[in-house]
Design a protein around this nucleic acid. Structure first.
Lengths: 232, 232
DNA sequence: GCAATAGTGTCTGTTAGACAATATGAC
DNA sequence: GTCATATTGTCTAACAGACACTATTGC
């Protein structure tokens, strides 16, 4: 940034776009909204919004603040209900026919109990299966690229981060945690080997037993656990 | 991006800023330029530039194209001489006193033989040690944050990617490759264990022997190798 | 001979992957 | 009793870390 040369560069609109992900029914799902305005009217899109301008004494919004606000206003979830992480910035000059728009994309991981609270008021928003539905959908702008990047990143990160704990309720069973791994990876885990890795987290005091048991269907009830270490 | 509301968002300048890294003398170094204009005049900064506007039939520059151009014009290296990877986008509203500026930051890994070709014409640009010098320097804008993010990312990625091969010449010795790992990690490796990991790359046909030998000082000459698998 | 780096092999502990049997509760 | 899931243990292969010696050159 050696010189300020307003003639040689245009100023661009800056948007944040969110890949809001959750795991429901052992399936990775993304929250999409249907556009009701030009361009790409009636196509499904990632929820997003423009970074707010500063007015008066205000200096304008942080990128992270814009992402938080967008998650809040498009899903109705309170701040902090999802884990936001900056993903990648997309800026192809033709990506928005209205004019030069830079999209700073984020992943937002939402636990399923929070996701269930999102009021799907009409047919203009909803959850879609990343494995079954999304590959057949045409998304607005370059949102298909963004979504694929988000899924790839999540898939890579779940191996060596605590990200999976952002996709289960605050207390959970080993089976629920395994479902999250399997939904994100798209492949099955050996339940015994998974349990052994989980046991190491217990031994390392990353996870503790929570009161109660939980059982679905007519199976044996499972112990309930809570993640202790700080998220991240 | 549900609606286009020009009144509620400002248009921002979009810059690319580059953490140009190389390993020289077994030390991780970054290329910095000294600003000769307001703001932060005379402070050291990452090389950067604004994303070019479209004019006439041109639609304006891609973000990656802007990064390539900035690397070329600030270092004199031809396109393709460095490995560019998008890092993170910084957008604190007060990060540039001239007005709202979004910085899409990149790491550029340059092999040392290319880095040596960069003409350091005057005292307004040069290579600085990330371990010895950078921690004591005040950089322009939030470039210290960007540089730390670049170093952290490089340090994390070198463990499980082929990134190190972008920091050695096209043919190299095992010792040179080990120097790169040690410079990036900031810690020593056991030469025997490192050689064993390297041997696996040879067995997997990722690396092949190149003609000749290379020796520095009065030590035994080392075999010379070439990375076979495509970069990345 | 001395200094300096290149190059090789062993032992041990950790981890992942493959694999089967028993336990518990709903129905 | 049947069904469905929870829970536990063994064997093997791959890999990392610690560690010592010989080989080859310049001086």
């Amino acid at each position: 940034m050696s010189a300020y040369a307003p003639n040689t560069h245009e100023r661009a609109s800056v948007a944040v776009d969110l890949a809001v992900l959750t795991v429901m029914d052992a399936d990775l799902k993304v929250f999409l909204v249907r556009r009701n305005t030009h361009p790409f009217k009636n196509l499904w899109a990632l929820p997003g919004g423009f970074v707010q301008a500063g007015r008066g004494a205000h200096l304008g919004e942080d990128l992270a603040a814009a992402a938080r606000r967008t998650l809040r206003t498009t899903t109705g979830l309170p701040n902090g209900a999802g884990r936001l992480a900056q993903l990648q910035t997309f800026g192809r000059s033709e990506r928005d026919p209205r004019g030069r728009t830079i999209s700073v994309s984020w992943t937002a991981l939402v636990p399923p109990d929070r996701a269930a609270l999102i009021q799907v008021t009409d047919a203009r928003e909803g959850w879609f299966s990343c494995a079954e539905e999304v590959p057949w959908m045409r998304l607005a702008f370059d949102h298909a690229d963004i979504l694929h990047a988000a899924i790839d990143r999540t898939r890579a990160d779940i191996e060596y981060t605590n990200l999976a704990f952002s996709l289960v309720p605050s207390t959970f069973t080993v089976g629920e945690l395994r479902d999250v791994h399997e939904a994100v990876k798209g492949s099955k885990h050996d339940a015994r080997n998974f349990r052994r890795r989980f046991q190491r987290l217990v031994d390392d005091d990353k996870v503790e037993e929570a009161p109660g048991r939980r059982h679905l269907g007519r199976a044996r009830p499972a112990k309930v656990w809570r993640f202790k270490a700080g998220l991240q």
